[in-house]
Each structure stands twice: as C-alpha cells, then as structure tokens.
C-alpha cells in the first residue's frame, strides 16, 4: 500500500515544482525584451472578440433568470422595487465575474490546452526550440497576458448585458422604463462593489491562461494526451476560479464589510 502511495505523492510534488518553474519562466520572459506584439494582438482577438457572443448570451440569460427567480419572493416580501438593486449588486459583485470566468475557462483554457498540446505532439514546440526561437515568449507569454487582459473586459461587457437581460425580464410582468431601471441599478452600487470584483477578474484571467498553457505545454506525446490536456485545463482552471473567488471575497469582507 505504502509503495503505491509514494509514486503518486512524488508525481504531485514534481507537478508543483514544474508549475513553479513554468511560473518563473513566464515572468522572466515578460521582461526579456522582444515582446511578440503581433501574436499578443492576435490572441486578444481570438480570445476576447471570439468569446464575446458566448459571454454576452450567457450573461443575458443569467440576468433574465435571476430576475424571474427572485421576483416571486421579493413580491411576497413587498420588496418588488428592490429587484434592480438586488440584481445589480449580486451581478456586479459575484455572478458576472464568476460566470464570465467559468465560460472562459470552458472555452479558452480548453482551446489553449488543446492547441499547445497538439503542437507538442506534432513536435512544433520542439521545432521552435531547436531553431533557436523562444517558444515560451511566443506561445505562453502572449496567451497568458491576452487572457489576463480580456477576461476583465469580457466581464465588464457581460455585466452590462446581464443587467439588460434583467431589465427585459422585469418588463415581462412590470412596467419599468429603461432609464428608471438603470438609474436604480447604478444608484444601488458603490465603487467598493465594483472595484474588488473587477480586480479579481484579472486573477481569474491569469489562472485560465496559466493553467491552459501549462497543461498544453506539459502534455505527453500522444494524441490521447491532447484531449487530456484540454480536459484537465478546464477542470483545473474552473477549480482555481472558485478558490480565487473565495479568497477574494474573504479579503474584501475583511477590508470593507466588517
């Protein structure tokens, strides 16, 4: 029994060590010079622009669903007028960032994991390395920075679209003007509701990019490993999003809501 436990434990430790090395390589290569601007812009387009519809649609539906779910309870309590505020605070602080990050983990982490994994299998990464080019700078730095920048932007857009979805759902049953609804939403929000939620999205983005790149870059040399890299990237990135969210909420509560 003990003999079987040791390899798994050692493998886990090796994996932690490799992640540490990968992390330091990423930071060293950011400041090394020769930043790949064209690849970075291409990745921002691939990651950000091409995820916009999916994030927008999901946020829109979530905004609608939240209002439809909340309404009966709020009406029962006589707090129907509080619906815009409830939606705004919950969406901006929590739902928007987490939903966007989870959608991005599913779409972006898996695609990065699969892309880099297949490049590894087909020896493209080795070819880059033996040619004297720097695969970390070209493939990893650009992707991680692009995701770190794009997830917060997608979250901002998702927040607005989610609130708009809530407005439409509210108008199924109640008659509220667009102007009044958004006035209520904005009036209910303080800067402190927005800022910590916005800051944590950068960490979500970094986690998605880092996990996707790490899993792809360290996949084994077989076609099966491409699927495993993509799958493992989604699962690990999603888990990290919840861990980061829990830590961020705890820090925010300690600093601002005591």
């Amino acid at each position: 029994m003990a003999e079987q436990a040791i390899p798994g434990y050692k493998k886990w430790l090796e994996d932690i060590g490799e992640q540490g090395v990968f992390f330091s390589q990423f930071f060293r290569n950011i400041f090394k010079g020769g930043f790949e601007w064209s690849e970075f812009v291409r990745q921002c387009y691939e990651i950000g622009y091409k995820s916009f519809m999916l994030v927008g649609l999901t946020s829109f539906i979530m905004g609608m669903v939240l209002i439809l779910q909340l309404r009966p309870s709020m009406v029962e309590m006589g707090a129907e007028s509080m619906l815009p505020k409830t939606l705004a605070v919950s969406f901006i602080r929590e739902m928007g960032p987490v939903i966007t990050a989870i959608i991005c983990a599913g779409k972006i982490a898996s695609s990065i994991g699969a892309e880099l994994g297949s490049m590894k299998v087909t020896e493209q990464i080795d070819a880059m390395e033996v040619s004297g080019a720097n695969p970390t700078q070209y493939l990893v730095v650009t992707r991680i920075l692009a995701v770190t920048l794009m997830v917060p932007i997608l979250t901002l857009m998702g927040d607005v679209i989610g609130l708009f979805g809530g407005f439409l759902a509210l108008n199924f049953t109640d008659d509220i003007s667009f102007h009044l609804y958004f006035n209520k939403c904005i009036a209910s929000l303080e800067f402190i509701d927005f800022l910590p939620a916005f800051i944590k999205t950068f960490f979500f983005g970094f986690a998605i990019g880092f996990v996707g790149c790490y899993k792809g870059f360290h996949s084994d040399k077989g076609t099966e490993s491409v699927g495993l890299a993509a799958n493992s990237a989604v699962v690990t990135a999603s888990l990290w999003i919840f861990v980061i969210d829990a830590i961020a909420v705890q820090i925010t509560s300690l600093l601002y809501y005591r």
Partner: peptide, 20 residues
C-alpha cells in the same frame, strides 16, 4: 545553446510546420 542552434538545423520526422 541558442547560438549553437542557429548553426545546427533539425528536420523533424513530421516536418513540424507551425500549422497556424
């Protein structure tokens, strides 16, 4: 090593073209 690799070319079995 980087300098050496500019003087030593390596042709992989698959060609290893960057497919993007």
């Amino acid at each position: 090593l980087k300098e050496l690799r500019t003087k030593v070319g390596f042709l992989f079995q698959s060609g290893a073209l960057y497919d993007s």
